[in-house]
Amino acid sequence: MNRVPAVAVAERAGVGVDGTARPSEDVVAVLPNAVVLLDGATTLRPGLRGGGWYASRLAGELAGRLMGYPSMDLADLLAAAIRAVARDNDLLPGESPSSTVALARWDGDVVEGLVLADSPVVAVTTEGVRVLADDRIATLPRPGPGYRERLRGGEGYGDDHVAALRTSAASFGRLRNTEGGFWVAEADPDAAYEACRATWPRAEVRQVLLASDGVSCGVDDYRIFPDWAAVAALATSDGPDAVLDAVRQAEEDDPDGTRWPRPKPHDDQALAIIEF
């Protein structure tokens, strides 16, 4: 008989692009049959609602559908949730806030994962670690010198950095939810069908981790963890907050973004660990 999975969540707010404190834009929802982790994109356009505002509403729509329709295809479910948020809030494609999506859902036989944009789902199985990641944002060409070169050159954070971020965001915005670009939850339900998917036999799954990029950067960018097995091991031995601590300490040791150029000194962090 399958036992009920235990879920542990660690969350920590980062800072805004101006370096000031503000509430986290990551959202985690824990349900009897699923975990949802969303990372609302920081808004750089004046007058546009925040990514955290969008993520909280999308999380509500997803939670209701995951509970009410436990066997509904995950892409169909996500598309319906995106459509509902857009309809109820008069959101238009290309002119709206957005969020990544990481979903894990299970029943007696399988564990499913869905990822849209850069919030991975990682399954620790009897056959090894399986990483479900959407790397389309990471592989896009970077136009112009950009904010990363400024930071590498030692110019640090400040007004000029924010201006460079706005320029970069404008360029990337044209690639959002387009072929050859990247896909994210926003106001176009069809983006749900571009998500990365995986299914694992439940009997083989030991743990599932869901992370926002404020945590996954410790593996993908900073390399303070050699792989996701190391993340899972630390979380198991010391708890998920220890993972957040390690990433935050790396950023504290690079306060001006010279070693690891990044939009903000500290991003929001969210990590959920499901123990099967």
Rank of each mutant, 00 (worst) to 15 (best):
D268W: 02
A63G: 15
L103P: 12
Y157W: 07
S96Y: 08
P70V: 12
R45V: 15
T199A: 14
A230L: 01
R148Y: 06
D90T: 05
S119D: 11
G94H: 09
G64I: 01
A232N: 02
L132A: 02
E251V: 00
A104W: 05
L58P: 04
L91A: 11
A195H: 10
T42R: 11
R262E: 07
G64W: 13
V7N: 01
P70D: 10
E11N: 05
G94P: 02
A59C: 02
L48F: 04
A163H: 07
L58H: 08
A187P: 03
D256A: 13
A21M: 01
Y69H: 15
Y157Q: 05
D88M: 09
L38H: 10
Y193C: 01
E186H: 09
E11P: 01
G60C: 04
P32L: 11
A123Y: 01
E11A: 12
F182I: 09
A10G: 05
T139N: 05
S24R: 12
G154Q: 07
R152V: 05
G52E: 06
A270P: 03
A6W: 07
M1E: 14
S96L: 06
T20G: 05
W106M: 04
E186L: 04
A63Y: 08
A138W: 03
R202E: 06
R176F: 06
S71M: 06
P255W: 04
P263V: 12
F182N: 12
V27G: 04
D118P: 08
G154F: 06
P93S: 09
A198L: 00
M72G: 00
L116A: 00
A34I: 12
P97A: 12
V17H: 15
S99G: 02
V215D: 02
S71Q: 15
E95G: 02
A84I: 00
G64M: 06
A117C: 13
A185F: 08
G173L: 11
A187R: 08
L244I: 15
W200V: 00
Y147D: 03
F276M: 12
E204V: 04
V36I: 15
D220P: 00
A80Y: 01
A104C: 15
R176Y: 11
T167N: 03
D268N: 07
T125Y: 08
L92V: 15
T100R: 05
D135E: 14
V15F: 10
A191H: 06
G68N: 09
R262F: 02
A10H: 07
G19H: 14
G40A: 03
C217Y: 01
P240Q: 08
G154R: 09
T199D: 08
L62W: 09
G158R: 10
G158H: 11
L77V: 12
M67Q: 15
D135P: 10
G108P: 08
A233Y: 03
S71P: 00
P5T: 06
P226W: 08
D107C: 11
P255F: 11
T199G: 05
D253H: 08
T139L: 13
L31D: 03
V85D: 06
R49W: 09
D220G: 01
